[in-house]
Design a protein around this nucleic acid. Structure first.
Length: 263
DNA sequence: ATGGCAGGTTATACCTGA
């Protein structure tokens, strides 16, 4: 089974690109973030025709929005609110056989890494804490769970183009990294991508739109993640970032991240 | 050395992203 996560930055604008991605990667399950559309206007029929008739969607106007698209039947699905906001940043779906998939769009956090001066950063920290506490209450050593999404935190030094230069930049500050690590420990979760691609290797999944030549300057960050529970770890076959997708025409600023499981 | 870009909106400037 192949599963991918992608911050698509508008599902309507990039519907054709999504079809191209289906052909490139042949995924069984696709988790999207920043769909930016209410459920009534989500291109559900077009995506079903492309081979993904089983869908769980939760969107709002203009901002945020998440979706899980699947070739395999979804037995049940739902959403949860975190940090006191109903803003379409999480959706989960259970597939046949009990595989549980959680898709998150964690708040970006604004520019100023100070929760007393910046409400968005305070919200991000609160969001990370509330998800951690929830996972801490879901302990089940046999659980087959996957947690994916745009976490908006690049935890490792090799997850950013310059650790030193980004220490005070939102997405790589120590307070965020500590909270992300706490969330990972709360699962406990295994970083599936770093199981396959060693932590010594630089790895990014996002490059700013603003650079002149994103590929040449390569100032990226690994903001998009796929975590799995210990019960799934023996099934992990592969993981990758589809960097080439960032170079396609009218791209999202995020590249898809993928894993393959022997299930 | 990031913010210079990009997406959405009852737009034609301003919010968001990170």
């Amino acid at each position: 089974m192949r599963l991918i996560t992608w911050n698509i930055n508008s599902v309507r604008l990039r519907l054709e690109t999504l079809g191209r991605l289906f052909k490139l990667m042949d995924p069984d399950v696709v988790c999207l973030q920043e769909t930016k559309v209410i459920d009534e206007l989500f291109p559900a029929d077009a995506i079903a025709e492309m081979g993904y008739p089983h869908q769980a969607i939760s969107g709002m106007k203009s901002y945020n929005g998440v979706a899980i698209l699947s070739r395999l039947p979804i037995e049940n699905w739902g959403t949860k609110n975190w940090a006191g906001k109903n803003d379409c940043r999480h959706i989960h779906a259970q597939l046949e056989g009990g595989l549980d998939i959680h898709n998150f769009y964690i708040p970006a956090g604004g520019d100023v890494p100070d929760p007393t001066a910046n409400d968005k950063f305070a919200h991000k920290l609160e969001f990370l804490k509330s998800v951690s506490h929830w996972w801490a209450d879901q302990q089940d050593p046999k659980a087959r769970r996957i947690m994916v999404g745009d976490f908006n935190v690049a935890p490792l030094e090799t997850d950013v183009w310059s650790h030193k230069q980004l220490l005070k930049i939102v997405s790589h500050t120590p307070v965020e990294v500590d909270l992300l690590n706490a969330m990972q420990a709360a699962g406990p979760w295994i970083d599936a991508v770093r199981e396959i691609i060693p932590a010594e290797k630089k790895l990014y999944s996002w490059w700013s739109y603003r650079g002149k030549d994103w590929a040449a300057s390569d100032r990226g960050r690994r903001l998009d993640h796929i975590w799995i529970t210990g019960a799934l770890a023996p099934k992990l076959l592969d993981a990758s970032v589809a960097r080439e997708v960032r170079g396609w025409e009218r791209p999202s600023d995020h590249a898809p991240v993928a894993i393959t499981l022997d299930i």
